[in-house]
Design a protein around this nucleic acid. Structure first.
Length: 415
RNA sequence: GCACAGGUGACCGAGUGGUUAAUGGUAGCAGACUGUAAAUCUGCCGCUCUUCGGAGCUACGGAGGUUCGAAUCCUCCCCUGUGCA
């Protein structure tokens, strides 16, 4: 089994499922915090492990190929046992392929059929990323889920440009898969025959499973079916053209992956357009595989997409916005630096049960932010991630109950 | 008391005759942020009006003066720092 995906409940198009990775389960629909450079910025790993009202914490986080390749270098990470061990994160890990950097570093790169030549934003040195290279790096990092190397098409893009970009992403997907299948055994944990969260791969840094509620539910019969290698996801592109999206989805499915991502969204288009593109793509993607919308979104967006049948999402928004003083709450957005919170003794979110809301006032968080205290970033990020994780937990619960109407209308409390 | 050096908008600090309501910072106020080149970026930041194009008023320690025109030059006064007594 490359990546078990067991659907446990459905409500309309939405599904509540469980992905079994070699590093623990992932309950879906899931929000995945972004940890670009081997850290979810401002939050220690042990805190990530029990964020949220139920202390389930994040079950999966992201890392980034481009950033970790430049620093500290994927070979160093491999030498140190892989990214899980390096950053002491025992749960599931997904690495982005560097495809998004093709888009975001547009002034520092050049795209050709072979791949993308980059200038490092750190020191200006030149580097070439190809599908093969991206796979090599991701395998060395040892993520549980590896992403195909794609081109995130810019927006706006003419139809013909979007088509050509999509075609190249398809060719790169085949190359990604070919290299990945030939080399996936080389990932740091595949070689050791690691199975499941319960084994003590590096006991010197491990917590015992019993102390980590979110990851402690494994039993031996399930463990035997856990993946022995990473899994590679394909990525659908197609710009803002529904027919291209469908074609991209069909042809990506033909190549065959254990999960599919929808990329190239939230790049400047309207929310309605984003939703339409997701809807068009979901029509085609197989219902028995995880579907992952990359790079979204606001709390209300991830709820909506989950309701449409999306299983996984990631976004820098909760972490970045937190560092910029924006808190997401059940009462809407709170810009904690605003003067009106200077004497507000209430919690950031009166309906949130996270450890930040239980302990600190808006006045204090504002003071920390205004004072540029590092703790401001820590506490704000902890809250935002807890809010996102709790939002997804509420969505999963609602699916189990077979009714998403309450949470879609925003009338259901998260805590 | 004498000699230098200074006194600029909330603060620091440019500017030494007009293009100056006055460069830059900081503080303050608000906004943005969607597979992280982001603890970042943007706007506002003398007062009063405004059809949002602008209009008027006040302002570079104080008071006079020179000049078509002064934060900028001159005189006197006040204050601050340093040195010498």
């Amino acid at each position: 089994m490359t990546l078990p995906f067991n659907i446990q409940a459905q409500a309309g198009a939405a599904r509540q499922a469980r992905i079994e990775t070699a590093h623990g389960p992932v309950e879906t629909p899931a929000f995945m915090p972004v940890g670009t450079a081997g850290t979810v910025k401002a939050v220690p790993q042990d805190i990530l492990e029990d964020l949220g009202a139920d202390n389930l914490g994040a079950q999966i986080i992201l890392g980034n190929t481009y950033h970790l390749y430049l620093r500290p270098g994927h070979e160093l990470v491999r030498k140190l046992g892989g990214l899980h061990k390096f950053m002491s994160w025992e749960r599931a890990l997904l690495t982005d392929s560097g495809g998004f950097q093709v888009f975001s570093l547009s002034e520092l790169r050049k795209v050709t059929e072979e791949g993308v030549s980059f200038r490092s934003h750190l020191d200006g040195t030149s580097h070439l990323f190809t599908p093969e290279r991206s796979m090599e790096i991701q395998i060395a990092l040892g993520a549980d889920i590896v992403m195909a190397f794609d081109e995130c098409t810019e927006h706006p893009a003419e139809r013909e440009r979007a088509r050509q970009s999509m075609e190249m992403t398809l060719r790169w997907a085949r190359r990604s898969k070919e290299y990945f299948e030939a080399h996936k055994q080389e990932c740091p944990w595949a070689e050791s025959g690691h199975r499941g969260i319960g084994s003590s791969r590096h006991p010197e840094t491990l917590h015992t499973p019993a102390t980590r509620p979110g990851a402690a539910a494994e039993d031996e019969s399930v463990s035997k079916e856990l993946p022995a290698t990473p899994a590679l996801f394909g990525i659908v592109q197609g710009g803002m053209y529904a027919d291209l999206r469908r074609e991209s989805a069909e042809r990506t499915v033909e190549i065959g992956f254990p999960g599919y991502a929808i990329g190239g969204l939230s790049v400047g288009e309207s929310r309605e357009k984003t939703r339409d593109m997701i809807a068009a793509t979901l029509e085609i993607l197989p219902k028995d595989k995880p579907r992952y919308v990359m790079g979204v979104g606001y709390p209300e967006e991830i709820v909506q997409y989950a309701a449409m049948g999306v299983d996984m999402m990631d976004c820098v928004l909760p972490t970045r916005a937190a560092r910029h003083g924006l808190l997401f709450t059940s009462e809407g957005r709170v810009n904690i630096k605003n003067a009106r919170y200077a004497q507000d003794q209430g919690p950031p979110d009166s309906k949130c049960g996270c450890r930040v809301c239980r302990r600190y006032s808006r006045a204090y968080l504002r003071h920390l932010f205004v004072s540029a205290e590092p703790l401001a970033a820590v506490l704000n990020t902890m809250h935002n991630l807890a809010f996102y994780l709790d939002t997804m937990r509420a969505v999963r619960h609602a699916i189990t109950l077979g009714d998403l109407s309450g949470i879609l209308s925003g009338s259901v409390s998260l805590a």
